[in-house]
């Protein structure tokens, strides 16, 4: 009985103290929200992030929905497949991976994204940089799936060329070594009536990709036009634009072949 009384007195004293502490907290928070201090302004700090271990591969994916993996019913995308494969081959290290791709991103938007401080920082640490870009630039040239506006397409292509130069230049300034794998474009409408016309435009854009890519060291253009050429519907998802899982697997195969070359080169 005595012990119980002592206990209840303790609880009461604690309760009273709690009341006072919380009331103080409440008053403080109102003060803080209604008249926030202006003197404590934050200055941008130059970060000193821990570097990622060199022996671990670090993939930084850039670009649009293809790098995002849209359309893959398994949710992997080519990058997920490649990452899993690389991991299998090098069980002792971890393949790290950041996907900075944004659905529907055009080359102009990628130029803007690359201006972000932290994005540049990630690129600095990257060991491999796969990119898919240009598909959305091209797509806006066709108001209607079937009807491509050739003049508009040409204007867009010139802008794309300029943006691409800037993208690759930026990447090279921040990371002179890491190989950049730039996927070229494919024609998702290769089984429609206008296929000759649409394919010729896509090929023209691919030439641009190739030409710009050539100007920068260690930029590998990964062609995928052929993968979707003969049986587009088999490798495209239900939106008839993005690849399905099989389609991404084919893209991943292409990328894996060339990525392996780079890792062998490093070991020697």
């Amino acid at each position: 009985m005595h012990k119980q009384k002592w206990m209840s007195v303790m609880i009461q004293i604690t309760a009273l103290l709690s009341f006072l502490i919380l009331a103080a907290g409440f008053v403080l928070s109102i003060q803080d929200i209604l008249s926030p201090p202006t003197t404590n302004a934050l200055t941008k700090k130059e970060e000193i992030p821990p570097p990622i271990k060199k022996e671990n591969g670090f993939i930084v994916g850039l670009g649009d929905s293809l790098t995002r993996g849209i359309g893959d019913e398994k949710g992997l995308g080519y990058i997920g497949i490649v990452r899993a494969q690389l991991q299998k081959k090098t069980p002792n290290s971890t393949i790290q991976f950041t996907n900075l791709a944004i659905n529907g991103q055009t080359s102009s938007e990628l130029v803007d994204q690359l201006k972000q401080h932290h994005v540049q920082h990630l690129i600095k640490q990257a060991r491999w940089i796969p990119i898919t870009i240009g598909g959305n630039d091209l797509r806006v040239s066709a108001k209607d799936i079937q009807k491509i506006d050739l003049k508009l397409a040409e204007r867009n292509r010139i802008r794309f060329e300029k943006n691409l130069e800037q993208i690759l230049a930026t990447i090279r300034t921040h990371n002179p070594q890491a190989p950049v794998f730039l996927f070229s474009l494919y024609n998702p409408y290769g089984d429609l009536a206008d296929k000759e016309l649409t394919s010729s435009v896509v090929l023209e854009w691919n030439e641009t990709l190739q030409a710009v890519g050539q100007k920068y060291p260690n930029v590998v253009i990964v062609p995928i036009f052929d993968l979707f050429q003969l049986q587009p519907s088999k490798y495209l998802s239900s939106d008839h634009l993005h690849p399905n899982h099989e389609g991404y697997q084919r893209m991943a195969m292409r990328l894996l072949q060339v990525i392996e070359d780079t890792s062998k080169g490093r070991e020697q």
């Binding site: 502490i21 919380l22 009331a23 103080a24 907290g25 409440f26 008053v27 403080l28 928070s29 803080d32 926030p36 201090p37 202006t38 404590n40 302004a41 934050l42």
Partner: peptide, 22 residues
Amino acid sequence: TDYVHVLPQWKYILMAYGLAWF
């Protein structure tokens, strides 16, 4: 972000629980 300021976490917790208390 004009009024942004940094608080030590204990103070933030005190204030957050003060609001929750209310």
